[in-house]
Amino acid sequence: MNRRDFLISAGVVAAFSAIPFIRRLNPPAPLTIQNAYSLWYNRPAVAELTGGFCFGYITSGGEVSVAEITDDLLVRRVNVMARFEGASDHGSPALIRIPSGQFEGHILACFSNHASPLYCMRTKRPEDIGEWEDIRVLDTGRSTYASVAGLPDGRIILMHTLQERIGNSSAGEWRRTVARSSDDGGETWSTPVQIVGYGAGTFPYSTPLVSSSDGRCAMSYAIYRSEHKRHEGLSVVISEDAFLSKIEIPINLGDDQIYDTIPYETRWVEDNNVAVSYSQMSQDGTRGVGKIAFVDVENRSVKSIVTLTEAVVHTYAGGAALDGSGSFAISSPPGGGLIIQDIRNGNSQAIIERGSFSSPWIFTLQGKPMISALKNPSIETTRRFSSELFVMPLA
């Protein structure tokens, strides 16, 4: 794939006096990678490299790819790790830079093609996406929604779902969310332990896995019930031992429990507090409103729920990206563009004035906040999808 396959689009971050954490410091121009889709469940999709980072995605033709991108947001090269026939939009890889041990600095990728075996690949050399070891099968079951997190002790936690089936009807299908860990850089993995599973006719839909600075893991989930054909409820799960044990904190949705609830992101915002970003769909499925629940982990209680702006709907509502402190969120409104909203006072302003976007995500590189989003997304079905991948600095 050559450089003509990429569109580098210039843009300027709008002056944002109402929210002072946005500063204009002559950042590099935004980057748009054509034919690149990254599902929000499969995060982190970024691994830091010296002088830049790599970003994982899948193309509409089923190429599971990793792009190496410089600090100046220029694509240095792209490596196609695998190809799926009949590709799904769920097939984008989760990436992590191995934190320590024999494979320190190598990039590890985990992915599946929506109810396919779970796959894993690792680069042959540290920070070099040009060559990868042979693809390995971590689970032969029907897997999807791979997500990874690193712990302070060097362990890697991998979370995904496994789909079970009895008979041929939807009432006989269900998913369970599991986690496994590796303490040798992905060389070997523990037996999976179940995080969530409710039996036939139920499908847990979770946020990506996140870890705290002291090694606790968190995820949030809703349950899709085939009988009702909607996602119901919302809970946070916290674990101090890679889900060998866990605590679960329900989020009381009150009168809003009648709406289809789509979990989007969980963030540790303080030592004992997490923020959960989720969307609630209108009864007819045409509109979605972003919300954030702030949860006190120590007291196992919900401190508050904040309603954000309406989010554009591409099959599901796009969700709102949270910053690491839980003070602002970025979302894609139905009118186009990307907006940033101060969670404390509700003030909002456009970062990008126009264009079709979805699934924003805030990540940090060398201490600097960045945002990615799907640009011009089209999700007709799980198998018929396309988008561009948009990346820009926030400061």
Results as ranks from 00 to 15, higher is better:
residue 45 A to H: 12
residue 315 T to W: 11
residue 388 E to A: 05
residue 153 D to K: 11
residue 12 V to M: 13
residue 70 T to F: 02
residue 147 S to M: 04
residue 110 C to Q: 07
residue 127 E to K: 02
residue 102 Q to A: 08
residue 19 I to T: 08
residue 384 R to G: 01
residue 55 F to K: 10
residue 157 I to A: 12
residue 48 E to I: 12
residue 384 R to D: 03
residue 146 A to M: 14
residue 252 N to W: 02
residue 63 E to D: 14
residue 122 R to D: 01
residue 39 L to I: 03
residue 153 D to L: 12
residue 199 G to V: 11
residue 256 D to I: 04
residue 13 V to S: 14
residue 348 S to E: 06
residue 315 T to S: 10
residue 348 S to G: 07
residue 383 R to S: 11
residue 52 G to E: 05
residue 158 L to M: 13
residue 42 N to P: 09
residue 86 G to N: 15
residue 305 I to S: 07
residue 234 L to P: 01
residue 25 L to I: 04
residue 112 S to W: 09
residue 117 P to F: 09
residue 81 M to I: 15
residue 130 G to R: 03
residue 206 S to R: 11
residue 250 P to Y: 06
residue 131 E to G: 07
residue 243 F to R: 06
residue 137 V to D: 12
residue 141 G to T: 13
residue 283 Q to F: 15
residue 18 A to V: 14
residue 114 H to T: 09
residue 383 R to T: 10
residue 315 T to G: 04
residue 181 S to Q: 07
residue 357 F to S: 01
residue 229 K to F: 09
residue 12 V to I: 13
residue 10 A to P: 00
residue 166 I to P: 00
residue 194 Q to R: 12
residue 19 I to M: 06
residue 237 V to L: 02
residue 9 S to R: 07
residue 196 V to M: 03
residue 233 G to Y: 00
residue 216 R to S: 07
residue 40 W to K: 07
